[in-house]
Design a protein around this nucleic acid. Structure first.
Lengths: 207, 207
DNA sequence: ACCCCGACTGCACCTGGGGTACAGTCACAT
DNA sequence: ATGTGACTGTACCCCAGGTGCAGTCGGGGT
């Protein structure tokens, strides 16, 4: 990394920051390169120097989003595990932490980049869709591992498929974000996470 | 309705059909008026005769989608009520019918128009967003009424807010469709509806 | 001192998509 | 016969997403 690259924040990062906010707020299609370069203070040529085309911007955006999401989940689970070493209670605490985090957001959740990509198909290439798929698969694996640890100690009282229960969290996050946005209710997502928590609790601990 | 309107299927309907498929598959932005008029066999002027602008097409599309969705739900609940007059078992049967319907779809669900609109903000006017919101509100009211009837007979064993539990179905449908698409697993949505059913069951009947 | 390289700028130009404007057509209903 | 609904055709405008390329500017390596 040269000194030039480090000064302030590189133009590339500035574009990515502006694009992320704009895309989550109004969608990828409605976000113009024009507005990004105006905001970042660079020329059109400068933009195309960093991103061969708009699709590459989408890829970079998704990659960054997935990475941050992963870091947030890592942090939440780490904090939950610190407080507790029982797998079930650790998971329940993590869900609580997550719900609190969502509840703390005063405005509606900016949206899930992965879902956003899903509804803009064909605009992006195969590669971008694989990225989204890999992210969803990573969520499944992560949550599934937690659930596997739980069943070893708590035999489920309600018959459920663990993979489905793992996917259910992804489903509720994505759906929760969407319905939260549609309803313009910032708290809806948090309440849905709490409901998922109640389900997990009742599956392993009963009513 | 004139004879002209009836011959074959009106151009307007043809456009709407083509647009619906295209939008659910690749998004509204990626669906060009050009491709629609080519498919419908009319001129550009013909398109703008029916829809003042692309936004009006979105509105018409959403309206049609919401109406069909309403009809499907009406039918499912009517069939479920025919088979059963207990509110809880009626709801559980309806969920089963719904899951079966979703499972019967061999390809991945085309997607939810309402969610699609949600992720394309700013592309549409206030009116379109109000439409999406009203649709989500209608789901909430419909499911909430079912749940209210259930609690009158079955005191909940797990403490849940009924409005949240009602919203949870919308959340799982939308999220299920999205994750189903991302994962390219057509059966995922059906399995998630079954899980929601298991939750409702355990809330009112226990493990 | 020299030059290369990364990170741009500026300008010219092209395409496709979303419109606008408006005159004309043609079948059918009254 | 006359009007109305459902269009067609032509012409034109703007904007966004590019493409192509020559030039610039500052730092680092030799």
């Amino acid at each position: 990394m040269s000194a030039t690259t480090l000064k302030r924040e590189s133009a590339r990062e500035r574009i990515l920051d502006l694009a992320e906010a704009a895309v989550l707020q109004k969608g990828f299609g409605a976000t113009s390169i024009e507005e990004l370069i105006a905001g970042a203070g660079i020329s059109k040529s400068g933009f195309f120097y960093h991103f061969p085309d708009k699709g590459e911007l989408a890829k970079a955006l998704l990659l960054r989003y997935i990475e941050r999401d992963r870091a947030i989940l890592d942090d939440i689970f780490a904090r939950a595990d610190e407080l507790n070493d029982d797998p079930l209670h650790g998971f329940l605490v993590a869900l609580k932490l997550f719900a609190d985090m969502m509840a703390a957001m005063t405005e509606v959740h900016p949206g899930c980049m992965v879902a956003s990509v899903c509804y803009q198909e064909q605009l992006f290439d195969r590669e971008v869709h694989e990225l989204a798929r890999d992210a969803a698969l990573a969520w499944r694996v992560r949550f599934r591992a937690r659930l596997d640890a739980i069943v070893a100690r708590y035999p489920p009282l309600v018959p459920v498929d663990l993979e489905d229960l793992a996917d259910m969290l992804s489903v509720m996050m994505d759906g929760g974000i969407t319905i939260s946005r549609i309803m313009r209710d910032p708290q809806l997502l948090a309440r849905q996470v709490v409901l998922y928590r109640a389900f997990v609790r009742s599956v392993f601990l009963g009513a």
